[in-house]
């Protein structure tokens, strides 16, 4: 069992979630409320990582982060940081790949808050921030929780893009899914099997916890008095 790989996967998932969830809430809410004609195009842009092959996404990200790219040069000069084949690069790639998982469920959650409730909040004298924290966010919560579970679970298991952008550097970019691939290549099915089972269990528990929370919340809401 490659515990370093497990720890790296967990760190990658946690960082991705920490950065992406606030962004997902902002972008998802904006998409839910905006009337811009560009909305279908923006939604398509955010959903693109779902339909593109991981190698295509990985190729473009690698090109974008390469040491000769504008971003690569900028990061190198500002922070003395190389994005390609490094953990920060992996986090950046993971954020991009998980955009649809973080934004689209949140958008659906905010779309479920009716105009009448927005109007009621305004007529109650609530400021925009009060309306957001006291009315919109609690009602859009199922969407936010779904986004969190999907982003965390998907990051844990991401393979293609991680391999393209991060390679297979132990302790730096070798996540659990890469470690499984590595063990299979090395004809070590026992280790690969143990890690695959562990990843399966973690993913199962994460998703089940998410659904369980939603169900408990749904029942509490329906219970009334």
């Amino acid at each position: 069992m490659d515990w370093n790989a497990l720890q790296l996967s967990a760190e990658l998932a946690a960082w991705t979630l920490a950065v992406l969830l606030p962004l997902g809430i902002l972008a998802g809410r904006w998409l839910a409320l905006t009337r811009t004609r560009a909305r279908p195009w923006l939604q398509a842009l955010f959903a693109l990582p779902l339909v593109l092959p991981p190698t295509v996404v990985g190729y473009y990200l690698l090109t974008l982060m390469g040491s000769r790219s504008t971003l690569g040069v900028l990061m190198d000069s500002l922070f003395d940081l190389s994005l390609a084949f490094s953990f920060p690069g992996l986090v950046l790639a993971s954020i991009f790949v998980n955009l649809p998982f973080a934004i689209l469920p949140v958008q659906r959650g905010f779309e479920a808050v009716s105009q009448e409730l927005h109007d009621a909040a305004a007529c109650c004298g609530m400021s925009r921030w009060q309306a957001f924290t006291r009315v919109e966010l609690p009602l859009a919560w199922p969407g936010v929780l779904s986004a969190a579970v999907l982003t965390f679970g998907h990051t844990l298991g991401e393979f293609g893009v991680v391999l393209m952008v991060g390679g297979n550097i132990p302790g730096q970019t070798r996540t659990l899914s890469i470690a499984i691939f590595d063990r299979v290549q090395a004809f070590d099915p026992a280790a690969a099997g143990r890690m695959a089972l562990l990843l399966l269990l973690i993913s199962l528990v994460t998703v089940a916890l998410g659904y369980g929370t939603l169900e408990r919340r749904g029942k509490a809401g329906a219970g009334g008095n």
Binding site: E116, L117, D119, M126
Partner: peptide, 17 residues
């Protein structure tokens, strides 16, 4: 709306669920 001294009751009451 939030600064106008008014109360509003809509058709479906719009209670926060």
């Amino acid at each position: 709306a939030r600064l106008r001294p008014l109360g509003f009751v809509g058709q479906n009451y719009a209670l926060f669920p």
